[in-house]
Design a protein around this nucleic acid. Sequence first.
DNA 1: TCCTGTCGGAGCGAATCGCTCCGATAGGAG
DNA 2: CTCCTATCGGAGCGATTCGCTCCGACAGGA
Lengths: 220, 220
Amino acid sequence: MKNPETAGIRAGSRFGRQAEAERNDVRVLYAARAVFAEQGADAPVSAIAARAGVGIGTLYRRYGSKEQLLQRLCSIGIARTIAELGAALKAEGTGWEVLADYMTAAVDARAGAFAALAGTFSLPEEVTAANEQAKALAERVLRRGHDDGTVREDVTTLDITHVIEMFSRYPRRTEEDDHARRRMLALTLDGLRAPHTGLPGPRPDWADYHRTWDGPDGPS
Amino acid sequence: MKNPETAGIRAGSRFGRQAEAERNDVRVLYAARAVFAEQGADAPVSAIAARAGVGIGTLYRRYGSKEQLLQRLCSIGIARTIAELGAALKAEGTGWEVLADYMTAAVDARAGAFAALAGTFSLPEEVTAANEQAKALAERVLRRGHDDGTVREDVTTLDITHVIEMFSRYPRRTEEDDHARRRMLALTLDGLRAPHTGLPGPRPDWADYHRTWDGPDGPS
DNA sequence: TCCTGTCGGAGCGAATCGCTCCGATAGGAG
DNA sequence: CTCCTATCGGAGCGATTCGCTCCGACAGGA
């Protein structure tokens, strides 16, 4: 690591400690995405380190602060969103189908999870620029649905953004949470058009719901 | 207050300090509902006291703990929900219209706001009993929509509950939040049926949205 | 004037969090 | 094998926050 040219370029080192460091980098990123997705963006950094199977010190050597880690995740997330929007533009199917697929993928990836702390940390300039790009792409995807008459005319891309953000924030503590979220998203997506299709999966179960309120130790 | 028969019965004292104490009781309840609605149920007790224009000591003399205050609010909330469901059963209109009105009112009142902390505090027995009653009433309201064919057959009352809870948790920091929430709820409600009606209000504005991310001091 | 009950908030103890610092250790060079 | 260096893991610090207690101030009623 004494050669400054290779500093920050990690794709080449494959053996020994450098390889471990490299693995830890991506493990931390995956863990951070998962933990922030499950517990919200004010989750403790220690939880991320634990999830990654890594010490706190290791985490902080890569990402100088929690804010920098969040920025890195935002950067990755918006890049992914842009890629998916680009793919949606080339995809086959009606405008509604393409839009629904994109929104489903975005919610699954929690693309709007960080909207909850809007204004609490600064966004890298590249991210705000990428956001503009994503907005323009989304406009084109939505227009396609408007043009072929499969998406109602009175929805805008900002409505789409709000929906993705709200569903991204929905908790995922249990499988029932996932199930409920998918059904609600299907409802909302059907609200974008007519006629309706069926809701996904079996009907939700009140027993599972009650377990959530009872806590892990059964009813009080 | 030396007569035990009048202890806890406050509707009679109208003058002096007892009247002030009485006013403070309801001001605290209103403030608690508002603060929990805006900041979530983990909002600090001091914020409630400040909102009510009351000292913390005054608040704690009425409600021995934050948990008791939450329980009181749950009790009031479920009673209100039951009353609205009863009214919905007698209301005129199609099954979808009645259901949509009820759900809109429930979301406006944040009837599902406390679901976020399910399992973190114990529910009074009366509340769990009232919940069962509300569930039965909701079943009848939904059945009406199924019977007259205005509500799709594959939604259940638990779906309705999930929708109310999710929208109840949606933040309300600005008017734009309210606006976005109303539009999304209209979308989801339309997802319950066909054909569609229009979304409420003007189209959302990206400029307002950006202000949220920029924070109170403008863009970075 | 005195007493009773109410009010408001300073502040305590506990819990949590972001982050630093350092001893332990694994791997490569000689 | 020995030594050196880069990396790892986590104890713990300082700051912050929160629920709650405690007490001095004070407004009526007798």
